Amino acid sequence: MNKFWKMVVGLIFVFSLTGCFGESYNFNPPSVKLSSNSTIKTEELAEGNIVWRGEGNKVKKELKIKDISSLAKQQPQMNFIAGEKVDLLFEHTDFAPKGLSVSVWQNDKKSDLKVSDISFNLPKSKGEYVMEVNLHTDRGDAQYVGRINIVEH
Rank of each mutant, 00 (worst) to 15 (best):
A82N: 04
S116P: 02
H136N: 12
N28T: 11
E23M: 08
G48C: 08
K66A: 10
I68A: 06
V8Q: 05
K58Q: 15
G54K: 08
Q143T: 03
E84T: 01
S125E: 14
H153D: 10
K58W: 09
P29R: 11
G127S: 03
E91W: 02
K98A: 08
E55W: 14
S70W: 13
Q77S: 12
D117E: 15
A46E: 15
Q106C: 00
A46V: 10
E132C: 02
L89H: 06
G99I: 04
A96L: 11
F21E: 09
V9D: 12
G56L: 07
C20I: 13
P29D: 11
V115I: 04
Y129H: 02
K60E: 15
S36N: 11
N107M: 11
Q106E: 09
L17V: 10
G22V: 12
R139P: 02
V130R: 03
I12L: 15
I12Q: 05
K85T: 12
S69C: 08
V8P: 05
F21L: 13
K110G: 01
F4K: 09
T137I: 04
V8A: 10
W105C: 00
I40K: 08
K61I: 13
V115L: 07
S35A: 09
E91L: 05
S69Y: 11
L45K: 05
V14R: 04
K109D: 12
N26F: 10
K73V: 00
V151G: 04
L45D: 11
M1V: 09
D108N: 09
P123K: 04
S24I: 10
Q74I: 06
G22N: 14
K60H: 14
L88S: 05
